[in-house]
Design a protein around this nucleic acid. Sequence first.
DNA 1: GATGAATGAGTCTTCATTCAT
DNA 2: AATGAATGAAGACTCATTCAT
Lengths: 206, 206, 206, 206
Amino acid sequence: MVRSKEQNERMSHVTREKIIEAALSLFAYKGYALTTIKDVSKTAGISTGLIYRHFHSKEELFDTLIEMAIIEIKELINFLDTDINPKDMINSLVEKIIAGIESSELIAHYYLLVSRSFIDNDVTKQQENLKTINLILFQKMSNLIEKGQQLGELKEGNADKLSLLFFSLTQGIASMKLFLEDKFIALESQDLTVFLINEEKGEEYV
Amino acid sequence: MVRSKEQNERMSHVTREKIIEAALSLFAYKGYALTTIKDVSKTAGISTGLIYRHFHSKEELFDTLIEMAIIEIKELINFLDTDINPKDMINSLVEKIIAGIESSELIAHYYLLVSRSFIDNDVTKQQENLKTINLILFQKMSNLIEKGQQLGELKEGNADKLSLLFFSLTQGIASMKLFLEDKFIALESQDLTVFLINEEKGEEYV
Amino acid sequence: MVRSKEQNERMSHVTREKIIEAALSLFAYKGYALTTIKDVSKTAGISTGLIYRHFHSKEELFDTLIEMAIIEIKELINFLDTDINPKDMINSLVEKIIAGIESSELIAHYYLLVSRSFIDNDVTKQQENLKTINLILFQKMSNLIEKGQQLGELKEGNADKLSLLFFSLTQGIASMKLFLEDKFIALESQDLTVFLINEEKGEEYV
Amino acid sequence: MVRSKEQNERMSHVTREKIIEAALSLFAYKGYALTTIKDVSKTAGISTGLIYRHFHSKEELFDTLIEMAIIEIKELINFLDTDINPKDMINSLVEKIIAGIESSELIAHYYLLVSRSFIDNDVTKQQENLKTINLILFQKMSNLIEKGQQLGELKEGNADKLSLLFFSLTQGIASMKLFLEDKFIALESQDLTVFLINEEKGEEYV
DNA sequence: GATGAATGAGTCTTCATTCAT
DNA sequence: AATGAATGAAGACTCATTCAT
C-alpha cells in the first residue's frame, strides 16, 4: 500500500510550494529576523521538521526566494536587450512596475526585499548575486537611456544619473506604498517618466 | 585622587556618542532585529555592559535614534511653516537634503533608518511617532505644493501625488547612495525638482 | 511513522513532572533567585530549552509550585470547615502533617517553600496569594481553637497566640527535618499538641 | 597635610562598620541574591569600589556576617556551659530570644539567615562552621534538658526530641514574625516552655 | 583612601536545527 | 514522508569585580 513514486513527488512538490509561499509572505511582511521557522511551518500548515526536508536551513530558504527575484530581474534584463525602441520599453517597464506595486503590498515588500538586500553587509552568496545583477540592470538602463537620447526620444542629461533617479524613484515608491498604505495615491506611467521622456505633441503632460 | 565630575561627564559623553554612531550605522544597515548589542559594542569599541550604563535597553537605544530623527523632521516642518514662497522653499529644501546625503554617510543612515521604520512593523512605540510626524510632513508638503501651483510657480497635478513622488525620490536617493557607494553620482537641485518646478526663462533645464 | 498523540502526551507529562520535582527541591533549598534554570534542567536531566516548552518563564515555573501549595492549603481549609469536633480535627491534622513531613522530602520541601515565601518579598504575584490564603488558614485555626476551648477540649489562652505557636511548630519542624536529615527524630502527634489539647484521663502524656 | 595613621585607621573602621550595618540589613531583608553590592554601597553612603578595600568579595562580606552570628551562638553555648540550673537557664534563654525577635524584624531575619544557611547545599566554609556550631548548640540543649529532667525541673520525654521541638519553635516564631508583621502576637516566656518545664505551684499556666 | 566608569562572566530566554518514532 | 519533542548556541541584560584617576 505504498504511495507510488509519482505520488510522492507530487506531494513533495506541493509541500515545497506551500513553504515558499508562506516564507515569501512572512519574510516580506515581517523581515528575515522576525520570521521564525515555526511561523513558516504554521502558515504552510506543516510541521517544522518537514521544512528541513526541503531546505537545509532558514538561510537556504531565504536564498531560494532571492534566487526567484534574481530570475525575475534576469528576465527584465533580457527584455531590455530586445530591440524595442527605448521610449516604448521604458513606458512598458514602468507600467509593469506600477501595476505590481499597486496590486499588492506583497510585491512592494518584494521590491524592498531586493533593495534592502543590496544594502546589507553580511550577505549570503545569493544576495551577492542579487547585488551584481542589480548593478547590471542599472548599467543596462543607462545604456538604454543613452540610446534613447541619441534617438531624441529621451531628455538629455548624464545617463547614469538619470538611471539612478529612475531606480531611486521606483524604490522610493515601493517604500511609500508601505508607509502610506490606504493613503497611497494611484500613479500613472507618466508620473515616473516625466523627467525622462520628451513630451510628444498631442499627449502633453504638464 | 579621583576623577573630577567634569572629567566623568566628558568621558560619559564621548562614550555615548560612540554608541550612537555605531548603533545608527548598524540599525540602518541591518535593521533592529539583526543588530546585536555586541555588534554595537564592538563597533563602538567598548564592552557590552557599558552600553547599559547609557541606555536601559536595546529598544531605548533604538528609540533614541528614532527620536533624533523625529527632531530633525520637526525642524523641517517648522521650516515649511515659515513664510517663504514655495518655489524658493523647495529649492532650499532640496539643496539641504542633497548636501546632507552627499556630505556624510551618517545622514544617509538617518534617511535609511527612517525608511526602514516604514517597513519594520511593531518594533517600538517611537516608530509610531516617527510615522505620524512623517505623515504631517507629507501633508505640509502637499499644502506647499498647492500654494505654489496657485502662484504658478509649480507644475500642475494632484498635490498629494507630487508630494509622494518628491519623498519617494529623496528616500530612494539616500538608499542608492549607500548601495552605489563610490559609484554614486553627484546630484544637483534641479535633478529632484524638474518634475515639480516650472522652468523659468533663462535657466532652462533640458 | 510518527509518535501517536498519546505517546507525545505521556512523554510531555513525564518531562513536566521531572521539572516540577527538580524545581521544587531547588527553590525550596536555594530560593528563587539563587536557583538557575540550568540548575533545574540539570537536576531534571533535560536541556534548558525544554523547560520553556512547559513553562513560559522561570517565574511561571515558580508560580506553578506556589499554586500547588495553595491548592493543598485550600484543601486544609476545607477540612477545617467540616463539622468534626476541634480536638479530633486537630489531632487528625497533626497526624497528617507529621506523616507528610516524615514520609518524603518532597512534602518537607513544600513546607519550606511556603515558609520561604513569607520571607522573600516581592518575588511574584502568586506569593501574595499564598500569603493571603495562609492568613485565612491561620484565622480558621484560631476559630477552631476558640470553639475547642468553649467545649473544654482545648487549653485556655489567647486563641490567636495558640494558633501562632501551632504553625510555628509545624513550620519549624519541616525545616528541622531538612536540617537534621538522618538525625531527625520521629515525632508523635502529641508532641505537637501537648500545649494545646487538654489531657484526658487514661492517656496522660508526661 | 596627610592624615595621621590613626586618623586613617579610625576612618577605615567607621567605613567598615557602615558597610556591615548596611549589608546586614539588606541581606536579612532581601536575601543574599537580591542584594547587590551597589545596594550595599548606596545604603552605606559610599562608592562600590570602596567596599572592595574592606572585603574581597560579596561572599566574604556575607561570611563576615555569618561569623558574627557564629560568635553570638558561641556565647550562647558558653552560657549553657555555666552552672546555672537548667530551668532558670532555659527561661532566661527564651526571654532573650523572644525579646530579640519582637524588638525588630532585623533580628527575626537574622534568625532566619541562620536557619536558612544550614539548609543550603552549596555553602561557604563559614556556613559550614555555622552548621557545625548549631549542631553543637542542639546537643548542648539536649544535655541541658536531660540534666533538668534528672532534677525533676523539666518534663519527661526523649531529650533530643524536646530539643528539636524547642528549636523548631524558635525558628518557626521568627518566620511567623515576618509573615504576620503587625498581626504578630506578643509572646511570653511560658508560651515556649510549656511543653518543656514542669509547672510549679503558684505560677500555673493553663 | 575613594570614586564610578568600564569589563565580562553568567543568567534568562528564544529559536534554528536534530532526531526518535 | 511527517511529526513535534528535545537540544544547545546565541542574544539581551545584570552585576560582581577591576582599574584609571
